[in-house]
Design a protein around this nucleic acid. Structure first.
Length: 300
DNA sequence: ACGCCTACCTGCTTGC
DNA sequence: TGCAAGCAGGTAGGCG
């Protein structure tokens, strides 16, 4: 399940391995993977001959920046992976899109469950920012092809220097939604998924069902620190692998064994020993320690 | 604003 | 053993 740390790992791997490479040709084996442009034949035509200048990340998408300023976005969703295959490698039956590089290697988009999407966009607009207090600019023309529009509704990057505790507090204020729901909401904060939402709440000792606007300033600071620490540690370990996630080298990450609550239902809390519980919040499995993460109204 | 539902997909696990 | 149901969860879109 690629979340921010897994996508960051893939992007860093690719930056090291394919920056500077030229895409000689591409083959689309599952047309629905191509979200833009349509039809997929147009995508192949437009990407052919392009040179990759650098690879980055925004939210849970890999950004493949092309030398001419265009950007290819790769949303891995559940089971997507970008893997660099050396010449002569065995074919992959789950490769949905194959980019043949001019040097003989292949950049393969592999996706067992086919949820992932790839788009090719004009650059620009990525850092678009509206000054505080300004509601809407006058009749901004629609430019649906700009990569910035793809992420126009996403929230801030939690590891950005600008994502301060005060900023988190401001975003939580007036929100009655549960913490777990908000952490998973990409327009609230970008890149957090089920694993790191649960891990951050455990680390911050906050119950997943707490209403966001009931947190004390101290609790907001704990959440801010916990979220960033959990994400940073996962990146340092090259991400958490369960069944599908691998880096661009095809190797799984090492962070899964470092998780404290996720998929540890019934096992002892690593802080207090109480059994980890699993509940459903917004149709998502949610893991927490009932002693370390109490609801204020409850006495566990 | 918020919660809830469905659709998209396939592989693996579980239960009879 | 075989087969079907259940489960995993990121995201878009719809409904109340």
């Amino acid at each position: 399940m690629p979340e921010l740390p897994e996508v960051e790992t893939v992007a860093r791997d690719l930056q090291r391995r394919v920056a500077g490479a030229r895409i000689a040709d591409a083959e689309v084996r599952w047309p629905r993977t191509i979200a833009h442009p349509e039809p997929p034949e147009a995508f192949v035509e437009q990407v052919r001959g392009a040179q990759i200048s650098s690879v980055g990340r925004r939210a849970k998408s890999v950004l493949v920046n092309l030398a001419d300023g265009r950007v290819m976005t790769v949303a891995l969703r559940m089971t997507g992976a970008l893997i660099v295959a050396e010449p002569g490698s065995a074919d992959d039956p789950y490769a949905r899109v194959v980019f043949r590089l001019a040097d003989g290697r292949e950049l393969r988009y592999r996706d067992v469950r086919k949820f992932g999407r790839i788009g090719l966009w004009e650059g620009g607009g990525l850092r678009r920012r509206v000054a505080p207090g300004v509601r809407r600019r006058v009749a901004e023309p629609r430019r649906p092809y700009r990569v910035g529009d793809v992420f126009g509704r996403h929230g801030p990057e939690p590891l950005a220097a600008s994502f301060s505790s005060a900023r988190l507090a401001a975003r939580l204020a007036g929100r009655s939604a549960r913490l777990k729901t908000l952490l998973l909401d990409q327009s609230f904060v970008a890149g957090v998924g089920n694993i790191y939402a649960d891990e951050a709440l455990w680390r911050a000792r906050l119950h997943p069902l707490r209403a966001a606007d009931t947190l004390s300033p101290e609790e907001v600071r704990r959440l801010h620190r916990a979220l960033r620490a959990v994400l940073r540690q996962a990146i340092a370990n090259r991400g958490s692998s369960f069944s599908d996630y691998v880096g661009a080298d095809g190797e799984p990450g090492a962070n899964a064994e470092r998780l404290h609550v996720y998929r540890r239902t019934g096992e002892p809390c690593l802080r207090c020993g109480r059994e980890i519980r699993r509940i459903t919040v917004g149709q998502r499995s949610t893991h927490f320690c009932p002693r370390c993460q109490p609801l204020p109204t409850e006495r566990p």
